[in-house]
Design a protein around this nucleic acid. Sequence first.
DNA 1: ACTAAAACTAAGCGTTTGCTTAGAAATAAA
DNA 2: TTTATTTCTAAGCAAACGCTTAGTTTTAGT
Lengths: 187, 187
Amino acid sequence: MARKKQYNEEEVIEKATALFWKNGYEATTVRMLEKEMGINQFSIYSSFGNKQGVFLESINAYKKRIRSITDKLSKSNNGKEGIKQYFYDFLEFAKEDDKNRGCLVTNTVNEIKEDGDPVIMEQLMDFANDIKQLFVDNLLQEKDNTIEEAARQSNYLMNSLLGLSVSSKVFDQSQLNDTIEFTFLNI
Amino acid sequence: MARKKQYNEEEVIEKATALFWKNGYEATTVRMLEKEMGINQFSIYSSFGNKQGVFLESINAYKKRIRSITDKLSKSNNGKEGIKQYFYDFLEFAKEDDKNRGCLVTNTVNEIKEDGDPVIMEQLMDFANDIKQLFVDNLLQEKDNTIEEAARQSNYLMNSLLGLSVSSKVFDQSQLNDTIEFTFLNI
DNA sequence: ACTAAAACTAAGCGTTTGCTTAGAAATAAA
DNA sequence: TTTATTTCTAAGCAAACGCTTAGTTTTAGT
């Protein structure tokens, strides 16, 4: 009846994700996507609607990939030690060759700001809140920790993780290790 | 002999700074600058060469403005307590109406990445290192603190400050206060 | 083999980007 | 007042942007 697609949508989105991760949303042009994904602009628009559609699918692909370490955290039951391990896992996850790309979601929050596309913004907020909730869950595994205290600590830890997403692009591994160790000293 | 300039270069750069601070470098177009600065594109290019020239002058204007709080830190002599005050001062400094714009320099580092313009990148790195050095100086005011320990602590504090630059755009004041208080418990 | 539907290629659409330029308006020395 | 010099306005440049479309190729049911 009709011709077959010569590409796999999941595969080309993986490649788009890498581009967005490296360059950000605005700086990634449709011509770059065309080249990296290995398919024509027509195919891009026919499969994903528009550039934003490609990006939203890339965010989904990113979430799926990072689930390997968030799952590890949600299964962890040794309190703050599990979160600390998540910090180290995240640094490894975001590493590409010897460079660190930070977190795709954090990068995007930084880029598109408050007047950015509301659909994308909501996606990003949900993602951050999910991780923060994982922190709270793990912090409550520590004995004598109240919900209020865990909430405060999770704010502190999220701040540190956001900082790490930025720092990892600029500072070297030993500086990052120091940062993580200090972060978990007194909670 | 010749016609007089109808604008003051410092004044129009102040307005350009506000625009870059709010929107970032790439998202700020020359047409937007034209409108905000209140002068024609010809005047912009004749005074500052190109868009990057306007931005570099804006970075200088930003540095001059933030000097009010960095000066306070460099004059401070009560160790980590002075740095903590700097964190609160920074949040106040970056506030615009009820929104927080973060740090112009941090925003730009996040935006232009490693393959960005080397001239801009160097400016940004110098700025970050200057602040980090101020942290070290103040940390050495604490008794029994070694240079190595102060260096490690300054990495941790810079990470927290970078995180705060991001967090302040998303979280509310009480969450930020909790974060700062927790940050200084550890050192 | 024929045909209809989907997927391909490649050219090109209108808009916006950073930047330039032709020409008018203003200024101060002569 | 004339003249030389600079600043102004406004139109326009090539290139790059996101996106579309005309026309060809491939496929599977008849």
